[in-house]
Structure formats: C-alpha cells, structure tokens
Design a protein around this nucleic acid. Structure first.
Lengths: 205, 205
DNA sequence: TTAAAATATTTTGTATACAAAAACAGAAAT
DNA sequence: ATTTCTGTTTTTGTATACAAAATATTTTAA
C-alpha cells in the first residue's frame, strides 16, 4: 500500500479542491471563496490560498473561479496535445519496450471488457503510457496539465461514450507494434481530432 | 508611456525576484529565504511566499533555490521547443501576414547591425514573433515558460556569441517568405539543435 | 419603475505571531 | 578523522487580525 497522504495542510487543500473540480462537485464557473473552503476543511485561509494559487497556475482555476474553457481554449489545447502525442507515438513506434507494449495492449483489452470506471482509467492510461515513453519530464508535465483540463469533461465523455474510440486505440497500438511510425502518428492525429470534435459537440449541451 | 506598475506587493515581489534571477544577480542554485527577501523589499513574508510559489510553478525556482538545469533538463526543454517552433514556423510559412513578415525581417536586420543589447532583444523577438503567429495562447504560454529558463543562460550566450546564429535566422526568414514550409521547419530544427549544443557547451564552463 | 448614489457586506491582500520542521554546529564516541 | 548524537538556530507552515478592495444592497432621486 502506498501511503501518500501528506499531513501538510496546503497539500491536503490542493488535493481536496482539485478532486472536487475534477469530479464535478465544483462546477465550472463556480466562485471559490477562500474562507468558505477553509472552514469546510477545518483549516485556515493561508494554505487554502496557496492551493488556489497553484491550481490557478495549472489552469484549473481562473480569476477565483473553476475554469470554464471555451471552444477556442479547447482547440488550442488540442493543437498542442496533437503535437506532443504525435511526436510521442512516433517515438513509441521506433523505440518502445516490450514491457510498455504489453501495458498498452492491456489498456486496449480493458477498454473493451472492463467496467465503466475501468474503461475510463484504461483509456486515459493509454495516452499516459505513450507520452511517458518519451521519458521527457517537461513533455509529461505539460501533457498532464492539459489532460486535467480536458478531464473537466470527463463526466460528459463517460455518459455519452464515443463508440469508435477503442477501435482507434487498437489501430494505434497495432501501428506502434508494427513499428510504423508514420501510420501511428497519422492515426493518433485523426484520433485526437475526433476526440476534440466530440468534446466540442458535447460542450454545447 | 505604459504605466504597468501594480501596487500589489506580491506582484512587485514576483517581478523583483524574477528579474534578479534572469539577470543573474541571483545565481543558479542560490537558496531563497523568504524573510531575507521580504526585508530587502520592505514588505512582509506573505506576498514573498506567494511569488516564490509562482516562480516555482514556472520552473525558475526548485526546492527554494534558483533552478540549475542539468544537461538533460536542457535537452528535454529543447525537444519540446523544437516541436512547438517547428509547427509554428510551418504555420508562418503558410499563413503569415505581411506585417509580421516585415517585423521578422526587421529582427534579422537589427540582429546584424544593433548594439549588443539590441541584438539580444531582436534575436529573442524573432522566435517570439514566430510562436506568436500561431495565435495559440496555450502554445505561447508554454514557450514563454521554457524561454525564461533558457534565458538563464543569457549572459553566457551574450558573452560568447554564436557567430552563425543570425545567418540561420536569415535563412529561416527567407524560407518563410518563400512559403516553403518544409524548408522552414527543417531549418528551424537545425537552428535549435545548434543552439542547444551551444548552450550545453557553455554550461560546462 | 428605473437609475444613481450611498451604505453595508463580503472577500481579498498583507502583516504578524507562533509552532513545527529542517538545517546547522559542536561535542562525544568510535 | 569520521561518524553519531545532542542541542541550537534558522526557516518554513499555519493561524489570526486588520485594512483595502471588490460586491452586493439599500436608499434616494428622477
């Protein structure tokens, strides 16, 4: 068992608020009031402020409100994301270890057969493994930041599940396994484009 | 005259510390002590802490010390930078406005004829214009963050000036002006590769 | 009734105090 | 001399108080 809980209040606060944002308990656009949150968690304002500042830097909070990305924000994020993942998947096709390949395949498998929660995690992991394989912490960090903003739409994406998503993952995996970098990149780009359109579509509702 | 000075202490502190880091008054690896800085600026610890946290997020401070990037950190940053600027320059070759093209050319011109300070600014601006032309705030933000870390080596780069740099800028400009996206991208990648190697070289000294 | 001004309330920014933790220094033991 | 322990000092994390700024509300005038 990993015991990751820190006793530090500002880390608790950070995790607490972040979770609330990501699972939708704090809706997009909600104003965050330091004192209210502090009281709610039984700590003082100071660590709450720290955590809000941090989340602001990460892009989950903007002007003391839960961020509410516009169409164009989402497009911008996906443009960068496509760039990074395009590079990463190409890297995978050329250098990926057997171990990571197996992990990728497992993600696809679980993506087909698991419970809703498992499917979600596996699909997320699929992309994380690909980015992670670059072994470039700067890249991974940028990716995770964008990921968490995209993740704001998690519920939407879950409830209105995109049907072909898992087939696209399968195809990407196949291209990687076949060491076909060009194809892998092209498939990834198409995949992300569809993801973006799906997000945009759902955002309107 | 733009009057951008904010009265807010934590912004002052942020700018103050950031400047000190970027112009080398605070050397890489220096421990930052909140109270010392607070006293130095005649304010309390609270806004100083805020600004340190912010700079930590931006990557200029790590574990309360001015960041001291390793070889591999620099490589990682340049890998991402190459990706972004490769995309951006390609975009420029296809869509750049006449106005921006002129500005780019001006940068090259000043890069040849200006004072040392002017040359430095112009060369920096050259890249900023290219990234800025994407009109993608997410991308611009990531770029600026990396830029400021690279900028830590400003002095080094100035004193040991890289001779061919400005010719490379000229070539990139020409490719953009000729709408040759492939060539522009390829030249940019080569340019950044040389820049990286120069940085790495100088880092040892 | 609506618009504007004035007032009250909330919320944030900053200073300060204190306790916990970390870093440091010196003494004792190997 | 090197390491380990002890105590001291520094530095950070957190709580709290208060003032400035921003918001909301009420009152007044048209």
């Amino acid at each position: 068992m990993t015991k990751k809980s820190t006793q530090l209040a500002y880390i608790q606060a950070y995790e607490y608020i972040r979770d609330q944002i990501l699972n939708g308990e704090l809706e997009r656009g909600t104003k965050l009031v330091e004192e209210r949150l502090a009281e709610e968690m039984g700590i003082s304002r100071t660590p709450v402020r720290d955590s809000i500042r941090k989340l602001e830097q990460e892009g989950l909070i903007k002007d003391k409100r839960v961020v509410n990305p516009s169409d164009s924000d989402l497009r911008d994020i996906f443009q960068v994301r496509t760039l990074l993942e395009g590079f990463a998947v190409r890297h995978c096709a050329m250098y990926m270890s057997e171990g990571d390949l197996d992990k990728l395949q497992e993600c696809v498998k679980v993506g087909r057969s698991g419970t809703m929660e498992q499917v979600m995690t596996a699909n997320k992991e699929f992309h994380e493994i690909i980015i992670g394989a670059t072994n470039n912490p700067v890249m991974i960090d940028i990716f995770e930041r964008m990921q968490s903003i995209i993740y704001l739409f998690r519920k939407t994406v879950v409830y209105h599940k995109r049907p072909l998503l898992i087939d696209e993952h399968q195809d990407i995996y196949d291209a990687i396994a076949a060491h076909d970098a060009d194809k892998a990149e092209q498939l990834m780009k198409a995949h992300l484009q569809l993801d973006l359109e799906f997000c945009l579509q759902r955002m309107k509702g």
